[in-house]
Design a protein around this nucleic acid. Structure first.
Length: 439
RNA sequence: GGAGAAGUCGCGUAGUUGGUCGAGCGCGCACGAUUGGAAAUCGUGUAUACCUCAUAAGGGUAUCAAGGGUUCGAAUCCCUUCUUCUCCGCCA
């Protein structure tokens, strides 16, 4: 979501950016928006003038009515005539005003519809490419080890610990759900608790947000398409289950004006996440990689515009540090222009190593949205000089099990079938250092 | 869930027989004066968005929970929704 003024003043830049994102079909939107904006402003100007006239006449009537009451009988007719003239003058403009008001509404809606589709200006550092095949590996952290023994499919590892029951979940809830049991369930909670404390120690404020939010908040944080593909709606109520705590955490600031001393907001939130996963990917049949329900520790930053680049760097590094502290090899994969969501300026995934597949897979996603989200949600900051400006917003996964457990189990599975627990998790596992398979 | 009360400019409040109310006062805050410095005191200022415009000054429009209605004119009247408080009920 760009500033309409920015589009007006830099149409070529906006178009260039659209091309960089391989969305040439959106190019006409720019000129359409500019034309609509011009008409809209003309309508606003004309309507404002008419309203000003109307207000003036109505106000003039006030004292006249007072006079009318006190006036002598023979003066009344003249005053009444003056009042009638004012009323008539007001009514003369009413038709045109109504017309203009309708136009204002129409133009605004048409402009907004298009503005939602025009992508945010990507950071100059973003690599160019049409799709995810052009995403760029930036750096690896830890050696991607392939052991000389076989690593089974993750659900199979879990089953050896009596740690998962997909069949029962299928019966109670259908595809895309799971029961985690015993040691695996405990490991799941331990990872979240450790991640929570990790972030608290980094100075973030721990939050437990609402897990359901109103429709208008949902509309503020995501596009209509995403909404249909992701969000579960509560029947008969204006409530949606959140797809990520980012929804309620950014929603927290909707329509708010923050003071500068409240920045940066550095928050880490826990929530279950509910996703329909309609569309492109779909639910993965066999495991807990892509499911309808998972839990996530998230980090959110709302900061001054000039600080967002630094926060972005800091945030993805926190994910790396967390995963490395659990001895899981990861890499940073930068999203190329074509793979970058429209709201984002820059984004990267932290991918964990899968020794079974001998490739990396996504476990964290770090994004800098610049002021796009803030503009849409009307999150503002009042500066020292009293002027308001839009802050930048960023978000990143801290950790999201059970998907994360796939990487955990595959990397820590020993030749004898046991799973070692990295030292940082010992306190969260009641001192357990090794998980021994039950079968 | 039931009954009642209420939602005004950061906070507290004034404003309900509709008309100089975008809105008074107090507190807070900012700037200035006073002071060796501070407190106290005095003075000035203190919403947001948009349009016009030279990213000035000035002007204009909209906003008194939100949306709609009545009216020449609404913070004030009517309708709907939301929220808060009190009491009752129910329940982790």
């Amino acid at each position: 979501m760009l500033d309409i003024r920015f589009v007006r003043e830099n149409p070529d830049l906006v178009k260039e950016n659209i091309k960089k994102k391989y969305q040439d079909f959106k190019l006409p939107l720019v000129d359409e928006v500019i034309a609509l904006d011009e008409k809209n402003r003309a309508a606003i100007t004309e309507a404002s003038d008419l309203r000003a006239q109307k207000n003036k006449l109505s106000k003039a009537n006030g004292p006249l009515f007072g006079k009318l009451k006190k006036a002598a009988e023979e003066e009344k007719a003249a005053i009444q005539a003056e009042i009638d003239a004012n009323m008539a003058a007001v009514k003369a403009n009413d038709e045109r005003l109504e017309e203009l008001e309708k136009l204002e509404e129409e133009y605004a809606a048409e402009i907004y519809k298009r503005m939602l589709l025009i992508p945010n200006i990507i950071d100059p550092s973003v690599p160019l490419g049409p799709d995810d095949s052009c995403n760029v590996e930036v750096e690896r952290f830890g050696d991607p080890v392939v052991p000389d023994y076989q690593i089974p499919y993750h659900t199979e590892i879990m089953e050896r610990f009596n740690g998962i029951d997909m069949d029962a979940a299928g019966r109670t809830s259908g595809n895309g759900f799971y029961y985690l049991m015993g040691d695996i369930a405990r490991l799941h909670s331990a990872v979240l608790a450790y991640a929570r404390d990790f972030m608290i120690n980094k100075g973030f404020i721990y939050c437990i947000p609402p897990f359901m939010i109103h429709g208008n908040v949902v509309e503020g944080v995501m596009s209509q398409n995403d909404m249909d593909a992701m969000m579960y709606k509560i029947e008969g109520e204006d409530l949606y289950l959140i797809g990520t705590s980012e929804h309620s955490m950014i929603g927290k600031f909707i329509d708010q004006i923050l003071t500068e001393d409240q920045l940066p907001q550095t928050l880490t939130s826990y929530s279950p996440c509910f996703r329909k996963e309609k569309g492109a990917h779909g639910i993965e049949e066999r495991g807990v990689y892509r499911i309808h329900q998972f839990e996530k520790q998230e980090m959110i930053v709302v900061c001054k515009p000039e600080d967002s680049t630094a926060w972005y760097e800091k945030m993805w590094r926190l994910s790396v540090e967390l995963f490395r502290s659990m001895e899981i090899p990861v890499r940073q994969l930068e999203c190329c222009s074509g793979d970058l969501a429209d709201l984002k300026v820059k984004s990267c995934d932290i991918e964990a190593w899968s020794p079974r597949q001998q490739k990396y897979f996504e476990v964290c996603s770090c994004s800098n949205l610049s002021d796009a989200q803030a503009r849409r949600l009307k999150i503002r900051v009042k500066g020292e000089d009293g002027k308001t400006y839009l802050p930048h917003t960023l978000n990143n996964t801290v950790v999201a099990p059970p998907r994360m457990l796939i990487a955990f189990l595959e990397n820590h599975l020993q030749a004898d079938g046991s799973v070692t627990i990295p030292e940082v998790l010992w306190p969260y596992m009641g001192g357990t250092k090794v998980l021994i398979p039950k079968k």
